[in-house]
Computed example of a mutant assay.
Amino acid sequence: MYKYTEKQFASQFFNMGRLRIGTLHNFRRTEHKRGIVDVDEGKKSVSHHIDVLHIADSQAPENDGNIDFRSLDAFQAVSLNNGSNILFKNVRLTKKIESQDFFVYSTSASRSRKTMREFEGADTCIEIFDPDNFYKLLTKPLNSITPVRFLGVKAVTYKNRSEEWNGVDSGTHPSLIKSTDYIPQFEVRAIWSPLVESTIEPVITAHCRLGEFCREIHL
């Protein structure tokens, strides 16, 4: 994994183990530099279109195999109770989904100058060659600030934030979606869920041993 940053921040990291852990919702703020700001971070919508759906009996067992029928409940569109002889025609169901806020530390799976140019001001590349121990250790100082649960390191999916319903669940979690404009970043993000119900903000944290699992590389 590769972290693209500015020389001054790389020096602080290797000298003191100092780094910044952001939050999902904070990425929406427009004051961030190019490559970081994303006003739609953590948001998506899911839709389903019903051409024609005739419900002779809402309690009939065969309804469970009908994706249109199941969508009415999934989208909380209407309560059928014991309804019968109901007709839906040319109906578009849509629901907006917003992720809870998470702590996020973003890196890239790509090692290249082209990728570094995606991040305004970045002139240094740090390789995390032992991510398991790096994130295990990083979780400790973060926990001392706010109790958290580490959810792992996950690759971002680049796609439209408007999805068609898959008939089962809400699809890709909104915290892992970026628009296709960001594809050259090849982002992977470490995610921590706060264990307290309060607003979270980015934090500056440090651990003197973090640098043991990283090295600066030249591109």
Rank of each mutant, 00 (worst) to 15 (best):
E212W: 07
Y4V: 08
T199W: 00
F119S: 09
Q76E: 14
A190R: 04
N26W: 11
Y158I: 06
A206L: 13
I126L: 07
A60E: 04
F213W: 08
S162C: 14
D169N: 08
S84Q: 13
A122P: 00
N26I: 00
S198N: 09
E187I: 07
T146F: 05
V91L: 13
L219K: 01
P184D: 11
I126Q: 02
M1V: 08
E212L: 12
I200Q: 07
W192P: 02
G152R: 00
N81I: 02
G167N: 02
G42V: 06
A155C: 08
K136P: 00
Y135K: 05
E197G: 14
H207R: 13
G42L: 01
R92P: 00
L138P: 00
V46T: 09
P174G: 13
R29E: 15
A56D: 14
Y135V: 07
S175F: 13
H49K: 15
K178Q: 15
L72F: 04
I200H: 05
H49T: 13
Q12I: 02
Y182F: 15
R113F: 13
W192V: 06
R92D: 14
N63W: 01
H173P: 06
L151D: 06
V168P: 00
T30Q: 10
R149D: 14
S84A: 15
N81G: 12
K3N: 11
R29I: 10
L176W: 10
K33H: 10
E163K: 08
R28A: 07
S71K: 05
F102Y: 15
E216R: 10
R117N: 15
G171V: 03
S106Q: 09
V91Q: 12
D123C: 03
V196C: 11
F103L: 10
F129E: 06
V91W: 06
T30W: 00
R111E: 10
S112W: 01
P147T: 07
G42C: 05
I217P: 03
S45V: 01
N160F: 12
S112V: 05
F103H: 10
S108V: 10
R111T: 12
R34L: 12
N90W: 02
T157M: 13
H54M: 10
I177R: 06
Y2R: 04
F129A: 09
V52Q: 14
W192R: 03
R28D: 10
